[in-house]
C-alpha cells in the first residue's frame, strides 16, 4: 500500500500520528525522511516534530536497516528461566556478541520485557516471537529464520 493510501484511512488529527507511523512501518519496514515529510505535510505539522516523535519509540525505525535483528529479553523473570544460557548459545551460533554491532548480516540485541514473562525466555527474530526458548532448541529456530 502506498503511503498516500495509508493516509487516506486516517483523519489528520494528532492522536492518529502514531497509528499512521506504525502502519507505514508495517508496509515500508522503516520511516525515512521522505515518509516523514509526506506525513508531516498531511498532519500540517513541522517535519522536526514528526521526526522527533518517530525516533522516540523503540517500535519505530527511522533508518533503513538490512540486517536481520535478533533480540533477547533481558528482564529478571526471563533471566530466572535461563535466558543467559540462551543468549550465549545465540552468540555462538551467530558469531557475534549481544550489543556488539559488527556483524554484516545480523544484529543481536537485548530488549525490554514483552509481558510474556510467564513463558520465558523470550526471543524475537525478525519480529517473530518465540517463547520458552531453550539453549538446545535455539539453533534450530535460528536456522529456520536466517
Amino acid at each position: 500500500m502506498s503511503l498516500q493510501k495509508i493516509l487516506l484511512n486516517f483523519e489528520p488529527r494528532p492522536e492518529n500520528l502514531l497509528a499512521v507511523l506504525k502502519k507505514t512501518q508495517k508496509e515500508n519496514k522503516y520511516i525515512g525522511k521522505k515518509e516523514c515529510e509526506v506525513i508531516a505535510d498531511y498532519f500540517s505539522l513541522p517535519l522536526a516534530r514528526v521526526y522527533s516523535f518517530a525516533s522516540f519509540f523503540d517500535g519505530i525505525r527511522t533508518k533503513k536497516d538490512d540486517k536481520k535483528i535478533i533480540k533477547i529479553c533481558s528482564g529478571g523473570p526471563c533471566l530466572s528461566e535461563n535466558s543467559k544460557k540462551v543468549a550465549r548459545q545465540i552468540e555462538m551460533f551467530l558469531g557475534v556478541e549481544v550489543g556488539n554491532d559488527i556483524h554484516s548480516k545480523y544484529r543481536l540485541e537485548y530488549m525490554s520485557c514483552l509481558g510474556l514473562c510467564d513463558r520465558g525466555p523470550i526471543v524475537e527474530i525478525e519480529g517473530n516471537i518465540f517463547e520458552r526458548v531453550k539453549p538446545e532448541t535455539v539453533d534450530d529456530i535460528l536456522k529456520n529464520y536466517l
Binding site: G76, C113, G115, C117
Partner: peptide, 11 residues
C-alpha cells in the same frame, strides 16, 4: 500500557 518487567496482569 503495562511494560514493567515481570508484570502481565492487565494483559
Amino acid at each position: 500500557d503495562e511494560s514493567e518487567p515481570g508484570v502481565h496482569k492487565d494483559r
